[in-house]
Nucleic acid binder design. Structure first.
Length: 375
RNA sequence: GGACGGGUGGGUGAGCGGUUAAAACCAGCAGACUGUAAAUCUGCCGCUCCUUGCGAGCUACGGAGGUUCGAAUCCUCCCCCGUCCA
């Protein structure tokens, strides 16, 4: 059995400590996935990611299909061989691009027609086509194509997107049964339903009936209040089978992550640590630190005095500010290294807290410190 | 000594009679970023005041005069800078 998920321990809060076995190794959950859309976590080498303890990376089906092309990647050893990443990978289907590239696509029940942001050419993605590409890419965990809508949304639009996502999940399952290999890849369904508890519940129940080996919750963290995100995660978690992994897509802010874990989430990914790093925002145990600010010009302290990462052990705020302000590429690298460390470290501490059954206390402490502000 | 071309806000540099406190870019200051079209985007960026308003006053386009209802824009003189000719 190539894939096996096991819940080792639960916390009174609802958090789960688990292990997900994949063909490329074990993922200890809850886990955070650094985002490597174009087969690279922008700014970091694979060696650095290994040092940081990244267990699993996310890449993007749509972007890699456009460039360099999935067949090319297949011929070069799949995603793992191509990018030289020995550990587990997950590919997102392109469903998020339905949302983020809304101006460049048309959608109907058959699938999505994208106009490439690279050269304007048209490309049709159906649930089957997305899977064909994902099978070629060869990630361990692969996602069904879904329709991710913007929030707030009308109830009718919400339900239509959820219904379409469900129909596509069914087609995806059939296609994967015929063309995929369940020993090699785990196909995960995505629950939609916007900010409507009723739509979420209905969608989750229908998807559970299709018996996927794992489930994701999509369409959240697109601008709605944190309470809504939590409420939706909670509703869906109550329906998903306890013995299968759960992936909350696209979250979240550091101070919110424990809240999602407490709703029973096992996997999470987010561009915040990497994108914000490139834009000069460092996450520290005492909140966000905008390295460009004039106050750090002569500050000899490390970004986060309580951080043990290689950047904080070696470099000052003054130096990182200089690099950022000068547009030096090393600034982006060091900031990214620190931020990814920060996220992975939070998850490590969360796993530890669950094993001691004290996640609620850890969460409260994390939030309070994070809100105190740097200095 | 002569002939041209120039001197604009922290910098580069538009404007060439009124809608110009003065384009644009850079620098500076601040903010945003949630399954990455992002090393991106947004706001502020002469001074002072307040009832913070598409508010009021002041100062400003090398210097001094002048023309005009009105000048960074036109005229005169002066001072600088560049290129070329002696």
């Amino acid at each position: 059995m190539a894939f096996r998920f096991e819940v080792l321990k639960t916390d009174p809060s609802g958090a789960r400590l688990g292990r997900l076995e994949t063909p490329h190794g074990v993922i200890e959950t809850p886990a955070f996935l650094p985002v490597g859309t174009a087969a690279t976590v922008k700014g970091l080498t694979q060696t650095q990611l290994e040092e940081l303890g990244a267990q699993v990376l996310l890449a993007n089906t749509y972007h890699l299909y456009l460039r360099p092309g999935h067949e090319r990647i297949r011929a070069l050893g799949g995603l793992h061989g191509f990018m030289s990443w020995p550990r587990p990978m997950l590919t997102d289907s392109g469903g998020f691009q339905v949302f983020s590239l809304a101006d460049l696509r048309k959608i109907n029940d058959d699938g999505v027609t994208f106009r490439s942001h690279l050269d304007g050419s048209e490309h049709f993605f159906s649930p089957e086509r997305a899977l064909e590409v994902e099978i070629a890419l060869g990630a361990d965990l692969i996602m069904v194509l879904d329709e991710c809508i913007a929030l707030p949304a009308e109830e009718a639009a919400t339900r239509a997107a959820a219904r379409r996502t469900l129909a596509w999940a069914e087609r995806s399952r059939a296609y994967f049964a015929a063309h995929g290999d369940a020993q090699r890849q785990m196909l995960m369904a995505i629950v939609q339903g916007g900010a409507s508890a009723e739509a979420r519940r209905e969608n989750a129940e229908a998807l559970v009936a299709l018996d996927f080996p794992g489930y994701a919750i999509g369409g959240l963290a697109v601008g709605e209040p944190h309470e809504t995100t939590c409420a939706m995660a909670e509703v869906v978690a109550g329906i998903l089978p306890a013995e299968k992994p759960r992936y909350l897509m696209g979250v979240g802010k550091p101070e919110d992550i424990a809240d999602y874990v407490m709703r029973g989430m096992d996997l999470m990914d987010c561009v915040l640590p990497t994108r914000n790093a490139r834009n000069g925002c460092l996450f520290t145990s005492r909140g966000r630190l905008l390295i460009r600010q004039a106050r750090y010009t002569e500050d000899p302290r490390p970004p986060d005095p309580d951080c043990a990462c290689a950047v904080c052990r070696r470099y000052s705020r003054a130096y990182l500010r200089h690099l950022f302000v000068s547009g030096e590429i090393l600034g982006a690298v060091l900031n990214t290294f620190h931020n990814v460390h920060f996220y992975l470290d939070i998850m490590r501490k969360i796993r530890e807290a669950i094993s001691f059954r004290e996640l609620a206390g850890f969460r409260a402490e994390l939030r309070a410190r994070f809100a105190s502000g740097p200095e």
